[in-house]
Structures are given as structure tokens and as C-alpha cells.
Amino acid sequence: MSVRIRFFARFRELADPEIVTEVREGTSITALIYAVTENNQAARDAIFDQEGGFRRYVILMQNGARIETTRAGETMVADGDEIAIFPPVAGG
């Protein structure tokens, strides 16, 4: 099955703005993003912490609906899904 991943803002400097990839059924959002950043250590370090979980402040969306980063490992993707990843900023 095919899913689309969209990176926003600063993450676009580290990864392609949009990636369409084939995945097996039963793939979690965490596993999906971990796989597409396999050869991109800078992107992986920006998105994941040292334990391999999403950095807590990262905003994840599945088809426009918010997914808590703590639940991304148990949230499976489906054919045609769009996953969006956004790093909020803090400056003023």
C-alpha cells in the first residue's frame, strides 16, 4: 500500500518536502518515519530522540487529524494515508 509523508517548515531543510512510499500492512507511523529517514541522520536526529521515539514537541497529523507522538508507535497507517510532520517554533 502507498502512503504520502509531508514534512513542514524546518524539516523540509532536512528531508524532501513530500515522500510517497510503499509500506506493508501493520506499519506504525513511528516505523514509517523511521524507515524513510533511514539514510538521513540529520532528519532522524531532528525528529526522534535517543530512544527512537518522536521528540515530544513534534506535531503529527494523520489525514488531517492530530496524533499524539506518544501514540504514534501504536497507530497504524492505511493505504492512501497522508502523514504530516511539523516542528513548532518558539522564537518571538
Binding site: R56, Y57, I59, E68, P87, P88, V89, A90, G91, G92
Partner: peptide
């Protein structure tokens, strides 16, 4: 609700047009 966890507050580069 939007930001349950704060993003890192490191000194950030910025160009004035963004603010």
C-alpha cells in the same frame, strides 16, 4: 491543546520579515 510540550527555546536565527 496545540502544544502540549514546548519546542526547544534555543537562540534562533531570524530574518526580520518573518516576525
Amino acid at each position: 491543546c496545540m502544544f502540549p510540550h514546548p519546542p526547544p527555546g534555543e537562540p534562533a536565527p531570524v530574518i526580520g520579515v518573518t516576525p
